[in-house]
């Protein structure tokens, strides 16, 4: 048994090296397929993160009347925190609001002067609410427009942003759904292209396969080397796909940063490179092995 495994591996390497042109062509096609896969991976990383960042930027602010008592406002905060849709509530007191306002306009003499002349704080306290999901803002805003709160609430910013938030929620949802379908489709096509290439390679070896069978080789001994070669295609193509994608990642990473400063593609790519290489090789090997195994079936029936 050990001898046969040794021979299968040896002939697998031979199959790979002695048919160098065929192997190169197969690996090239596989590299392209795996780059598509890696591209999908990177694309989904980018959209996921962009969406997360965007989602995080969506919020509702409730502004309270300036005469609303602070403990009343804090009571509303606590009850909001009790809602399952609410991720986080931030309380900004009137004093804090003023501080912020001053800080934001510290270079504007007129405004600073006007505040001082006004003598009292004109700003309202507010609650800044973030939801787990943009679609949930509707529920939260319904809760807030509840009549019992009406006397102390000045305005809810959601109503101003409602159309934008609704649109964004829809866009996010669509992008994710379409992305998943597109990714599945592309993966399928890439897989089929690789399968077909390997099928052609095996087809060109069909006579050899027949000869081996006629000389008395078992199916295992005939098939084994082709499976090993399939594994080798996968390893080489997996490595190459990551190596070839690297420059592209380095190139586009700064542009991504311009759009979404929170997303660092390059750092993500490099910190996960071992996992990426392993998954790429894994995919390549599965493709190679399954294709070889499947494509050989009919030629072994002699």
């Amino acid at each position: 048994m050990f001898t046969i495994i040794y021979r299968i591996i040896k002939y697998g390497f031979q199959q790979f090296s002695r048919n160098s042109l065929l192997s190169a062509a197969t690996v090239a096609v596989m590299v392209m397929a795996l780059i598509v896969l890696l591209g999908i991976n990177i694309f989904s990383f980018l959209t996921d993160n962009t969406l997360a960042v965007l989602k995080d930027k969506i919020d509702i602010s409730v502004y309270f009347k300036t005469n609303a008592p602070e403990d009343e406002v804090l009571r509303v905060k606590r009850s909001l925190e009790g809602l399952p849709e609410v991720k986080q509530v931030e309380y900004i007191s009137r004093d804090q609001a003023l501080e912020l306002f001053k800080a934001n306009h510290k270079n504007d003499e007129d405004i600073t002067q006007a505040i001082i002349e006004l003598g009292e704080n004109p700003l309202s306290a507010s609650l800044n609410i973030k939801a787990f999901n943009p679609g949930q803002f509707a529920t939260i805003s319904t809760y807030l427009s509840n009549n019992s709160l009406a006397p102390i609430v000045e305005k809810i910013s959601f109503y101003e942003n409602k159309t934008v938030i609704d649109l964004l929620a829809k866009v996010i949802d669509t992008v994710q759904k379409a992305g998943t379908i597109l990714a599945a489709l592309l993966t399928l096509i890439a897989g089929l292209v690789v399968f077909n290439t390997i099928r052609l390679a095996i087809y060109s070896s069909r006579e050899e396969i027949g000869i081996m069978r006629l000389v008395g080789a078992s199916n295992l001994f005939v098939r084994g080397p082709y499976i090993v070669a399939g594994i080798l295609y996968g390893i080489v193509a997996g490595l190459l796909s990551v190596l070839l994608t690297l420059p592209a990642v380095i190139f586009i990473s700064p542009y991504v940063k311009i759009f979404i400063p929170e997303v660092n593609l390059q750092a993500h790519f490099f910190s996960n490179i071992h996992i990426l290489i392993l998954t790429q090789i894994g995919f390549g090997m599965i493709l190679g092995v399954v294709s070889s195994y499947w494509a050989m079936r009919r030629y072994l029936k002699v």
């Binding site: 069978r213 006629l214 000389v215 008395g216 080789a217 078992s218 199916n219 029936k301």
Partner: peptide, 14 residues
């Protein structure tokens, strides 16, 4: 069967 054929063929040179 296809699994048994190799055994036969090891008795034949072609």
């Amino acid at each position: 069967s296809y699994q048994e054929l190799p055994h036969l063929r090891r008795h034949i040179g072609v």
